[in-house]
Amino acid sequence: MGLSNVGYLLRQGVKNVWLNRLLSVASVGVLTVCFLLIGTATLFSFNMGSFVHEVEKKNELVVFLEDDMVKTVKHRLEKIKNVAKLRFVSKKEALEMQFSKLDKGGELFNELSQSNPLPDSYRVSLHNVSEMKKTVKKIEKIKGVEGVRAPDDVAKVISQMKSTVKYAGYIIVGFLLLVSLFIIATTIKMTIYDRRREINIMKFVGASNTFIRIPFVVEGVVLGLLAAFLAYGVLYLGYSYMLDIMKEFDVEVGPMVREGIVPFAEVGGWLIAGFVGVGSLIGAFGSMFFVRKHLRV
C-alpha cells in the first residue's frame, strides 16, 4: 500500500465522520454519556476517599514523653513509615490546652503551673489508620516514650469506611464500564450494519480488507476522541460549577468537607488519559471487530 493511499485512507476516515454525521452524533453522544457517568463516579469516589482521609488526619496519637527525651524520640518517630506528621506539644502547652475552657487565672492553674504534672508529648497523625495498632506497638518500644494514647474505635470505623469507599468505587466504575462497553458495541454494530452495502461494494471492486478497515478504524478513533474531550469538558465545567456553589455555602459546609474536596486538576489528568485511552481503543477495536463480519465476501 503506497504512501499516497495511507493519506487517502486517513482523510477518508475523518471525512466519514461528517458524511455519516447522524450516526456519528449518536455514537459520540452515547460514549460521552458513558464517560460522564464513569467520570462522575470517579470524582465522587475520589472525594469520598479524600474526605475519609481528612478525618483520618484529624485523628492523632498522643505519644507521652519522658523528661528530656524530646530529641531522641523525635528522631526515632520520624523513621516510622506510617507517621505522617509530628506536632510537639510541650508540658506548658498541654496544661494551657486543658485549661483553655476554664479560668486560666484560677488558683488551680497557677498552682499546677509551678509543678506541672503533665508530660511533654507528640501529636502524631498517621498515613494509614488501619495500621494504627502496629504503629502504636512500634512507638511504645521507643526509649523515652512513656505511653501512647490511641483512638482505637475511631480507627476501626475509619478503616472500614476506607475499604467501603474504595470497593464501592471499583464496583460502580467497573459496572458502568461494562454497561458502557455493551451500549457502545451495539452502537458501533448499528453504524457498521448501516454501511454493509458500502463495504460489500468495496470488496467487489477489489479492495483488500485492510484498505476497507483503515478508514473505519480512523473514524472510530476520531469519534472516541471527540467523546473523550467532550466528556472531559463537561465534567470540568460541572465540577467547577459545583465548587462555586459550595463556596457560597461555605459556612454550612464546614472546614472538614472543604479541605477534603479534591481539586479537579488532581483527578482531571487521570480522567482525560483514561477517556482518551478507552475512547480510542473502543473506537479502533470496535470498528475493526464489527467490520470483520462484513468483509467475508
Partner: peptide, 30 residues
Amino acid sequence: YRRSLGVVFQDFRLISKMTVYENVAFALRV
C-alpha cells in the same frame, strides 16, 4: 483476483456517499 476483473453490476452498486469521480477513482486507489 477481483482487481483483474472489471465488473458492471446489474444493480450498479455505486457508493452513494461518493461522487461519480470518487466512485470511479476508488477502483484505482485499491
